[in-house]
Structure formats: C-alpha cells, structure tokens
Nucleic acid binder design. Structure first.
Length: 332
DNA sequence: AAGCGCGCCAACCGCGATTTA
DNA sequence: GTAAATCGCGGTTGGCGCGCT
C-alpha cells in the first residue's frame, strides 16, 4: 500500500534549486496558493516532485522566514524547548516565529549540541553528563579511603578526615560550578537573557559558590567559610513577571496556537510552556511529552521533586540550611 | 598551489499520521 | 471499512566553502 516515493518519479529534477525555479515556485504560490503539493509542479511548470516544492517553499522561500544568525535569546529558547519537547523540531519551530524546523534542527546539531557538551551537559537529557556525576561517587571512595587511612594513623585522624571532607566539598563545588557556569557561560542556562536579577536564577548562590571556590583554590576551606552558607537565603519566590517571561501576548502565543497537539496541551497549562523551568529533565525517553502521555499534572510537571538529578541536590542546597551535616549526607 | 579534512546546511528519504474517495 | 493519496516530520546525506598543512 502507500504511494511511490518521490524519488521513483522518473525524470524529475533533484538537487539544488536554481533561482529560476525559485521564481516560478514563488510566482505560482503567490498567485494561486500551493493547493495540492502533488499537483503544483505540473501546474506551475516545474520539473520537480511536489514534496521537493513543499520543502523548498517551507524551508526557504516562504516570505515570513527569518534568516541569519540565531540570537542569544533564540538559542536559549531552543535549548529550553528542547529540554521539554525533545527532538520535536516542528513544535520548537512553532515557538520561534520565522524559523523553520529544518533550520533549528541543523543549528541544534551543529552548534547547540556542542555547546551543551562543552558545558558538561548531556544534549539528550539536558542533565549533567554521567562522567561528571561519576566524580561524586569517586568522592565517596576518597572519603572511605581517607577513613581507612585515618584508622591506621590515629595521630592525624581527625585532621585528615576534616581535610578529606573539605576536599570533597571543594570538588563537589567545582563540579557544581562546572555544571552551572562552565566556560563562564551562565547565560546559556538562563532562558530569559541577562535581564533577570541573579537571585531569580540562583546565581546569587552560584556566585557565592564561585567566590568560595576561588578562595579555596589556594587551600582548603575553613569551617567558618562553609558555615557562611547557613546564612544563604531560602529559595526565592519568582516575581510573577518571571513566571511567564514570554507571556507577553503576541507572537509566541500565536505561534503556540498553531502548534500540534502536544503544544496545545502545553499551552493549556495555567503556567504553560512559557514558564519553562530551567533544565527540566527531559530526554526523548522521559520528556514532558511522555509526561503528558502519562497524564502528569502541571503541578507535577513543575515540581522539581518529580525528577532525580543533580539539580535535585542543587535544589536541596538552595532550599535547606547548608550545614556540614548536609554536605555529609550529600556526599554519602 | 594543491590536497585534505571538517563544518555547515539545503535537500532528500522513509515513515507515520491524516485525509479522501 | 478500507485502500490510496497526501501531508508533515525527523533523520540522514552530500555538496560546497573554508581553513589548515
């Protein structure tokens, strides 16, 4: 059953389009609309298959196509949408007016994927790469080894254990900083651009971490330095304008409306896709699309506790009093 | 200057979903 | 209800341009 593939239609031209062909196609569509793509090439006098014409039109000739480099905002939006939707390029394109799914797909594969990898994030899951997380387990081994060592050398036991703990903290901090601010590119994790106050993004803590890490680079932390974390503010509630950063009426809502089923579901949320959480756990295997299929409620969707990631620990870090006991629990 | 490797991106391919007769 | 036709999507390919040796 089915139809003959486009390529089976003998005598039809393939490959790059010439300016003349482009003109014919544009003229025809402007006068008559595309109607049936299958019939279009014959009617327009093009020696192409309908599929090729449709692709050329939708990916290149359409008048509303925005060409040129992707802005920082667009890149951040793509990353966040990809975290939620996975490789649903057409759905992602629906949120970027003037951009085609093909263009976004190409840009993802050639630029953004590498960018995430450089940041130590898995471009599929948007979570820290496993090789980075493995460092955490090695910390436990380090502590264990240190404990064994201290048992045999009782004279320095307390001091060594303390040092090892501090080292563990330091390395954990380093890992977190790599995740949060690799290559000084924190903005990439920020879907709203640089206009947001740091505290909205958790950068307040991040910069404190950075400061402490920097101060540690020449030696271990003092106990007092670490206990400064106890003074960190509890998790800030986001101002409403940041809860819906893209909810400014116009184009995004419109593009959302034209999207497919999944998109509609996303748009129907009271706190819709517009308020994408940073780094939502979502590989194609466990994407929000899948979550939707499992009838996950919006609240569950936005609930960080429903995922199990390093960022869960990060959330704990932000939410709770950070004491030595916390660090011990974290590491153990 | 020539050869080579690599990155980018337009276009193609195959398949599933939807529409039509 | 069913098969064919059509559409649209995501993955992949291949050609071109550019930089390096």
């Amino acid at each position: 059953m089915g139809r003959a593939p486009c390529s089976d239609e003998s005598g039809l031209k393939k490959g790059p389009w010439t300016p003349e062909e482009d003109n014919i196609l544009v003229d025809f569509i402007q006068k008559h609309g595309h109607g049936s793509w299958r019939a279009l090439p014959k009617l327009a006098g093009l020696n192409r298959c309908g599929k090729s014409c449709r692709l050329r039109w939708t990916n290149y000739l359409r008048p509303d196509i925005k060409r040129g480099k992707f802005s920082e905002e667009e890149q951040q939006l793509i990353i966040n949408l990809h975290a939620v939707l996975g490789n649903k390029w057409s759905a992602i394109a629906g949120h970027l007016p003037g951009r085609t799914d093909n263009e976004i797909k190409n840009f993802w594969n050639t630029h953004l994927k590498k960018k995430l990898l450089q940041m130590g994030l898995d471009p599929v899951t948007h979570q820290p790469r496993s090789d980075h997380l493995n460092l955490l387990s090695s910390l436990q081994q380090l502590l264990t080894a240190t404990n064994i060592f201290t048992n045999t050398l009782e004279t320095n036991a307390l001091r060594l254990q303390s040092d090892a703990t501090e080292l563990a903290k330091l390395q954990l901090l380093h890992n977190m900083l790599q995740v949060l601010a690799p290559a000084s590119n924190l903005d990439l994790l920020n879907p709203f651009g640089s206009s947001l106050p740091d505290e909205v993004l958790g950068l307040d803590q991040c910069s404190k971490l950075q400061n402490i890490y920097n101060s540690c680079s020449t030696g271990f932390l003092s106990q007092n330095q670490f206990q400064n974390f106890e003074g960190l503010p509890q998790q800030q509630s986001l101002p409403t304008e940041y809860n819906n950063p893209m909810n400014n009426g116009g184009s995004n809502r419109r593009s959302c409306m034209k999207s497919e089923k999944v998109d509609e579901q996303l748009c129907s949320f009271s706190t819709p896709l517009d308020s994408l959480p940073n780094l939502v756990s979502a590989s194609p295997e466990c994407s929000t699309v899948k979550q939707m299929e499992n009838m996950v409620t919006p609240n569950e969707f936005s609930d960080p506790s429903s995922t199990s990631t390093t960022f869960e620990m990060w959330g704990d870090f932000i939410n709770e009093e950070v004491t030595d006991a916390f660090w011990k629990d974290l590491i153990e």
